[in-house]
């Protein structure tokens, strides 16, 4: 995995695990690899992985089981909320950048709709 060196690594590991959950490579109830194993895989410090995982536990996304490791929550409402939160994070960036260009919300919808139609057509070619 490539990291952006200007962003805290624990934060990027959280984003990586969010993504694995959202695209269902980590399914509800699935066990995460051991901390050290994850650290080797991502080429980062064990402490950094530990920090990312404990924040995910605090957010209710991972459920620790004593002596067994960390598991993705099976609480679907938490996972639905996670998906919404991550998507909104991406949309917020687009919104802010377009707002800086003084594009109105109605124009944004128009541009976005047109753009999506274009992309759909491209993928049919």
């Amino acid at each position: 995995m490539e990291f952006d060196d200007k962003v805290p690594i624990y934060y990027q590991i959280k984003q990586y695990i969010y993504k694995e959950i959202i695209v269902n490579r980590l399914k509800p109830g699935a066990k995460l690899p051991a901390v050290r194993q994850l650290a080797v895989k991502l080429t980062v410090n064990v402490n950094t992985v530990q920090r990312a995982l404990s924040e995910l536990v605090n957010e209710g996304i991972l459920k620790p089981q004593r002596g067994k490791g960390n598991f993705v929550t099976t609480d679907i409402s938490v996972l639905v909320d996670l998906r919404r939160r991550v998507v909104e994070g991406q949309l917020a960036m687009v919104y802010d950048r377009l707002a800086e260009l003084q594009i109105t919300p109605d124009e944004m919808i128009q541009y976005l709709t047109n753009y999506i139609d274009q992309r759909k057509e491209q993928s049919h070619d």
Binding site: F3, D5, I9, R36, A39, V40, T43, V44, N45, V46
Partner: peptide
């Protein structure tokens, strides 16, 4: 990979380097 895997849990590692990019992701 060996450093990450073999560091004992409570141990500390001091790494000198003049080319920090190699190890930036590893450092506390």
């Amino acid at each position: 990979a060996s450093i990450i895997q073999w560091k004992p849990e409570m141990a500390t590692i001091l790494i000198s380097d003049h080319h920090v990019t190699d190890i930036a992701n590893l450092l506390d």
